[in-house]
């Protein structure tokens, strides 16, 4: 199967979406799957990118939640893709989407998944499944934790279920995974992280509260 991994993060490196796709790749990589990778961190797609995507059996999008929805740069790209795909009648192409957000509760990503499913309907593609990931702020720190253990237990379980469905090319209900980590500790760690970041930029803790 030809699978396209589409990273919808605006970041060029160290993105949570990129990390999620790396982990997914490890679960899909064995066998006869050919995975091609794309970064939609641009306002417009090239004709070459679009032509390549039409040759794929499966599109896998991974992106961060922005203001309860799809980041605008990715939205511009999928609007462009809709125009292309709806003229092709390619209901054999399956779409899976992975959305992560800084909020602890995975269900806050639900509307972004609904929008992706609505995009599939408008584009004539087939919706496979969505994976909503809460606590995205801690994802990059899971790299050194053993798979299936501790704070990454729920993440690995959800990703493994999604990978199985991608391999079978089936449509299933969306999956919602909260971190295997207490919410209060996640909140405190996040706030500590912001204080560290503001100080690293030569500012003071109270500058986080600046009003214009």
């Amino acid at each position: 199967m030809k699978i396209a991994f589409i990273n919808g993060s605006p970041k060029f490196k160290e993105s949570a979406s990129g990390y999620i796709l790396e982990e997914l790749k490890a679960l899909l990589g064995k066998g006869s799957n050919m995975i091609s990778e794309y970064c939609f961190n641009k306002p417009k797609l090239s004709i070459e990118d679009i032509e390549q995507l039409k040759e794929c059996n499966i599109l896998v999008f991974a992106f961060p939640l922005y203001v309860d929805g799809i980041p605008s740069h990715l939205l511009r790209c999928i609007v462009q893709l809709e125009e292309f795909f709806k003229g092709l009648s390619r209901s054999d192409i399956m779409v899976y989407s992975l959305v992560n957000s800084g909020f602890y509760e995975a269900h806050q990503n639900e509307l972004a998944l609904e929008m992706m499913e609505n995009w599939c309907i408008k584009s004539g593609l087939k919706w496979g499944q969505g994976l909503a990931i809460g606590g995205g702020g801690m994802l990059l720190s899971l790299k050194n934790v053993s798979v299936g253990h501790g704070p990454r237990k729920n993440f690995d379980k959800g990703l493994s279920e999604l990978a199985g469905n991608i391999l079978k090319c089936t449509s299933e209900n969306n999956i919602f995974i909260n971190p295997s980590f207490p919410r209060i500790l996640y909140k405190l760690a996040a706030e500590m992280g912001w204080r560290y970041s503001v100080k690293a930029n030569g500012l003071r803790r109270k500058d986080l509260f600046t009003k214009k």
Partner: peptide, 16 residues
């Protein structure tokens, strides 16, 4: 321009 996900509006130039 699109948001580049840098969080600079929170930790570099807070509020802008």
């Amino acid at each position: 321009h699109n948001c580049i996900g840098c969080f600079g509006c929170w930790v570099k130039t807070p509020g802008a």
